[in-house]
Write a protein that binds this DNA or RNA. Structure first.
Length: 173
DNA sequence: GCCAACGTTGGC
DNA sequence: GCCAACGTTGGC
C-alpha cells in the first residue's frame, strides 16, 4: 500500500472492498445444480448453499457484493467447464442447510444464534456454449486463473477483470 | 475407479 | 502448536 495517512488507508479500503466490482468463478456439480436447472426456476436464482470451506465462505461473507459477475462452472462431470454467466444478487446470509439434521450439509457445530456457514443468491443470466476446461488451459492469457493451478480445489475463486473480459470477448461463440 | 492434492481433525 | 491420519475434491 502506498502512503500512510488514514485518508489514504480509507481510500484504499474503499477501492478494495466497497467500490470495486469483483469477478468470480463458482463451481457446481451439474447433477446437483446446473445452469440449465437454475434457468428453469421461477426467478432463475439459487441460494449457493453447501459451501463448507472457510476460504470460500470468507469470499462470500467479506468480499462478494450484489452486482458482482459470476462464471458458472460445471465440475465433477463428463464435460467440466464454464456453462453460464451469472450475477450475485444478495448479501451473504446464513445457509439454511447447516441447521437441518436431515440435510447432507448439516453441521452439528453450527447454531442459528451463531451460524458458521453462509450463502449468497446467484442469478443465472444466460447459458453459454460450454467453455471446456481444456479450452481455458489453451490460452496463456488465462494461465494465472486459480482454477487452472495444479491441485486447486477451491469452489469459489476470484477472477481478474482482464481474465473475465478475455473470456467474454474471445471464448463465447 | 484411481489418485494427487488439499483441508480438517484431534491427540499429544 | 505440531503433525499424522483421515476425508474430500475433481480431473482423468
Amino acid at each position: 500500500m502506498q502512503g500512510n495517512t488514514y485518508w489514504e488507508l480509507f481510500l484504499s479500503l474503499c477501492t478494495q472492498n466497497i467500490m470495486t466490482k469483483h469477478f468470480w468463478l463458482m463451481k457446481s456439480e451439474p447433477t446437483e445444480c446446473s445452469v440449465q436447472s437454475v434457468l428453469k426456476m421461477p426467478q432463475q436464482t439459487v441460494p449457493w448453499f453447501g459451501i463448507r470451506n472457510y476460504q470460500a465462505r470468507n469470499f462470500m461473507r467479506d468480499v462478494m457484493k450484489p452486482g458482482d459477475a459470476v462464471l458458472f462452472y460445471h465440475s465433477s462431470c463428463p464435460h467440466p467447464g464454464i456453462a453460464g454467466l451469472a450475477t450475485v444478487v444478495s448479501e451473504a446470509k446464513p445457509d439454511a442447510t447447516q441447521f437441518d439434521p436431515t440435510d447432507p450439509y448439516y453441521d452439528p457445530k453450527s447454531t442459528p444464534e451463531n451460524p458458521r456457514w453462509v450463502c449468497v443468491d446467484v442469478r443465472v443470466d444466460r447459458e453459454i456454449p460450454l467453455i471446456a476446461l481444456s479450452e481455458l488451459r489453451a490460452h496463456p492469457e488465462l494461465s494465472q486463473m486459480r482454477i487452472l493451478q495444479k491441485g486447486n480445489r477451491l469452489s469459489i475463486t476470484e477472477v481478474s477483470e482482464s481474465e473475465y473480459r478475455f473470456i467474454l470477448e474471445n471464448l463465447i461463440r
